[in-house]
Design a protein around this nucleic acid. Structure first.
Lengths: 158, 158
DNA sequence: CTCTTTTCCTACAGACTTACTAGGAAAGGC
DNA sequence: GCCTTTCCTAGTAAGTCTGTAGGAAAAGAG
């Protein structure tokens, strides 16, 4: 039985964003330990560790070992977008058959498929790059996004 | 090395759309054989067969066996959207951790994540449901989509 | 009825991805 | 030295993705 594809947010990406939000909302009471985040957001501890590691390598968080170490955001929460987080843990936001749209080539009646994928990607970017960790953590989504989410139609499954 | 997730259009979905476009553009010179489509679009023949089968079960195409059989669209090309095609071969357009957004529950600073995913999904739908096979086959994308695709920024990788 | 064509169905296989878990080494503070 | 917490390598069970193989069932032509 085939299931869900299309815009798939994996567990890894979902966890990454939630962890980042937890860090964003911790204001500045020192760094947060992986385990504290794991408990707060109900994420498997060791799995989260590897995600936080990706985020550190990607320059999104900084870490401190030992006694009262932990993680904190490397930049202000309003300077990190959801797209930043997803890209750091999973690579490109949009891909077709494993490659990014500009590398594709279509022929015949499928020629205009490329512009379509490009438009789609641009649209997804617009949303995910336009929303910061601070926006979500404070429940203040940008007007355009909030408008989309408020339409009742948006909540019903097709 | 982790790679591409996010909005992933699988080979299966890409092939399905291209096959449907080929059918759309064949006007009405009788049904098209699977092999003819496979050749025209450079899709593995047997793989395409199973995709066309999904599309038949989903009511998108009708088939005819024997002598000069083949496939044709079950509805006019301007009554089938790209979203229809993708959904028939891959299920829901957008999912988070394998489930559809409305089934999720977030807590703490992640509470506003749900509206964000909903907004994202609504946006993706708007595009993919708003473009028909006829639009793509005739290279006449709807104004809003064409505008997105025409922005030079949309074509550069981040 | 037989032959050819083409769809339809089932089964499988190899490579890859996903979501984890285990165990310990390295660093930092007391 | 000791305790904590990050950091690193490895592995694994289950699933998905992209196909292939082989044949049975239908439709029409002769």
């Amino acid at each position: 039985m085939r299931d869900n594809v299309g815009m798939r947010i994996s567990a890894r990406a979902d966890y990454a964003v939630r962890a980042a939000l937890q860090l964003a909302s911790s204001g500045d009471g020192g760094p947060l330990k992986a385990e504290a985040i794991a408990d707060a957001q109900d994420i498997p501890h060791k799995f989260l560790e590897s995600i936080l590691n990706d985020m550190r390598r990607g320059g999104l968080v900084v870490s401190q070992r030992g006694g009262n170490g932990g993680y904190r955001l490397a930049k202000p929460a309003d300077a990190i977008s959801i797209a930043d987080v997803i890209r750091v843990v999973e690579g490109p936001l949009v891909s077709v058959r494993g490659v990014r749209p500009p590398e594709l080539s279509y022929s015949g009646p499928a020629e205009s498929l490329l512009p379509l994928w490009i438009a789609l990607r641009s649209n997804v970017r617009q949303i995910l790059e336009g929303v910061s960790l601070a926006d979500v953590a404070s429940s203040q989504l940008p007007a355009g996004v909030a408008a989309l989410a408020d339409a009742p139609k948006a909540w019903v499954n097709p």
